[in-house]
Amino acid sequence: MRRYKVSVTTAADGTATTYTPRFDGKIHSIHYLKDGSNGYANGVDFTITAEATGENIWTESDVNASTVRYPRAPTHSQAGVASLYAAGGTAVQAPVGMASDRVKIALAQGGASKVGVFHVLVDNR
């Protein structure tokens, strides 16, 4: 595993966009740590994507506290049909893979000049 720690400070309008370094591997988890003294306003919105393709990794609105997510993407057959665990069942999901790409972290409604930290854990075996 490898950890990419990204500190994100919002602008006066409560928005921010920043990136991890480039990496190769599968995203294992993303940890958001709310700063104890100058954290984002309650209700901050996250849009976290792959920079090169725009693939969604984690989108969540109205986040109030530190949290951890284990993002996964739905899988498909060679015919483009969604893979399911059982007929009409839950989608089969797999970790999001990245190849020489960066994770783009975009925030909205975070409050002026507020701080948070994101830890992106990557399985790069």
Rank of each mutant, 00 (worst) to 15 (best):
D62F: 01
S77A: 08
A86C: 05
D62L: 01
V81P: 00
S66P: 06
Q78Y: 11
A91K: 14
V68W: 07
R72D: 04
N64I: 02
V81N: 07
P95L: 01
G97F: 06
E60T: 10
V96N: 01
A79Q: 13
V96K: 07
A82M: 08
A99M: 07
V92T: 11
V96E: 01
W58I: 02
P71S: 02
Y70H: 09
S61H: 10
V63K: 07
P74Q: 07
E60W: 05
V63E: 00
P95M: 01
S100F: 09
G89W: 05
G88I: 04
Q93Y: 06
A65W: 14
V103A: 05
T67R: 12
V103K: 06
A86F: 10
D101A: 04
S77N: 10
W58R: 04
K104R: 15
G97A: 14
P71T: 00
D101M: 03
G88R: 04
T59A: 13
A94L: 08
A91P: 13
V96I: 15
V92S: 08
V68T: 15
P71W: 02
Q93G: 01
D101Y: 04
A82H: 00
A79W: 09
L84C: 05
G80V: 00
Y70Q: 06
R102V: 09
V103I: 13
S100T: 11
T75G: 06
A73K: 15
Y85K: 14
D101W: 03
T59P: 00
V96G: 02
Y70G: 00
A82L: 15
V81S: 07
S83E: 15
S66F: 02
S83W: 08
Y70T: 10
N64H: 11
A82N: 02
H76A: 09
W58P: 05
Q78E: 13
T59L: 07
S100C: 02
W58T: 03
Y85R: 13
V92F: 08
Y70V: 08
G89Y: 03
E60S: 12
P71L: 03
R72M: 12
H76G: 00
V92C: 08
V96D: 01
T90E: 11
Q93E: 13
V92Q: 13
S77F: 04
P71I: 02
D101L: 03
R102I: 03
Q78V: 13
R102L: 04
A91V: 14
Q78W: 10
D101H: 05
V68A: 10
N64C: 10
G80D: 00
T67A: 11
A82F: 02
A86R: 15
S83V: 12
A65F: 15
P71D: 01
A87T: 11
A73P: 01
T90W: 03
L84M: 11
P71E: 00
V63C: 05
S66H: 04
P74V: 06
